[in-house]
Simulated scan of single mutants.
Amino acid sequence: MPHIDYFFATLSPYAYLAGNRLEEIALKHSATITYKPFDLITGFGRTGGQPPKDRHPSRQEYRAIELPRQAKKLGMPFNLKPAFWPTNGAPSSYAIIAAQNEGGGDVGKLCQLIMQAVWVEDRDIAQDDVVRDCLAKAGFDPAVADKGLLQGADTYARNLEEAVEKGVFGAPFYILDDGQKFWGQDRLEDLEMCLDGRL
């Protein structure tokens, strides 16, 4: 059974644009997924990248064109300038880690709901009530947000170290159990082709 390590940040617009395609691919190929939210901004600094605000104006301009274009291509609602971005992505990441450990709901849906809260609904995912609402809608007990906070913080930090160690430099980033790597929501087709044995 193939396995996918999924490195992402809950504040990443490109992770939002991945939608549920990873989960659909995994279901089709009987693959398992480990969700690994990590501190992308710190990751940028350790892998030669820069946060969007520090990038050259030409890169910022292109980002402002490319994100709405990709959203339109995918038929997904998208707000280029959400009310609560950037914000603290750690609480939502801790909740995803706790939910994955607890079980009983849909982790993929939880991730999508959290990112949708940022990029569509103008909600602050650093707030407990927003995180709890996403947990409930994904089939988890909202109290999961209060469980394992120390473990969540520890796992979140370890996910960053693992990401840097494995060559992850952006989000979303997918690594198959044979070591094949894919960066970006626009590489999900390639990931599926690898699972099919076509690449």
Rank of each mutant, 00 (worst) to 15 (best):
I97S: 09
Y156N: 12
R69T: 05
L199E: 11
D196Q: 14
D186K: 03
D129P: 11
D186W: 01
D177I: 13
Q185H: 08
Q60L: 08
P172Y: 01
Q70W: 10
E61Y: 02
A138S: 14
K147S: 14
K36W: 03
W183H: 08
L17M: 09
F44L: 07
A153L: 12
A15N: 04
D154F: 05
G148I: 05
M115Y: 07
F78H: 01
Y16R: 08
R46M: 15
L22Q: 11
F182I: 07
G108N: 08
V130A: 12
E192T: 10
E162C: 05
D54G: 11
A15H: 00
I97C: 09
L150M: 13
N88Y: 04
F173G: 00
G108V: 07
T10P: 12
G75S: 05
I4M: 04
E121T: 05
G152H: 08
G108H: 03
F7S: 07
V164I: 14
V130M: 13
A138D: 14
P37C: 15
G45Y: 02
L199W: 12
T10F: 04
G48R: 00
W119A: 09
A153S: 14
D178M: 13
G75P: 05
C194S: 14
P68Q: 04
L150V: 13
F78P: 06
F173C: 01
N79Y: 02
A136C: 10
P2T: 13
G48S: 02
D106S: 12
T47F: 02
G43V: 05
A95S: 15
A9V: 00
L191R: 04
L176D: 04
G49L: 04
T47L: 02
Y35E: 06
D133V: 11
L195Y: 09
F140W: 12
L150E: 15
F78N: 05
D154V: 04
A126S: 15
A143T: 12
S92H: 14
K28F: 03
V120E: 13
I4W: 01
S58I: 10
A71P: 00
A117W: 07
K36T: 06
D122F: 08
D5A: 11
S30W: 03
E121P: 06
D129H: 12
I97D: 10
I65T: 09
K53W: 05
A31T: 08
P77S: 08
E165H: 07
V118W: 09
G170T: 04
T10R: 04
Y62A: 00
W119E: 11
L80Q: 09
Q127P: 05
Q50D: 01
G184I: 02
D122Y: 08
F169G: 03
M76C: 03
F38E: 05
G43H: 00
P51K: 10
L150W: 07
D5V: 00
L188N: 03
K28Q: 14
Y62E: 07
G45T: 01
A95R: 11
R198N: 11
A98D: 12
K137T: 09
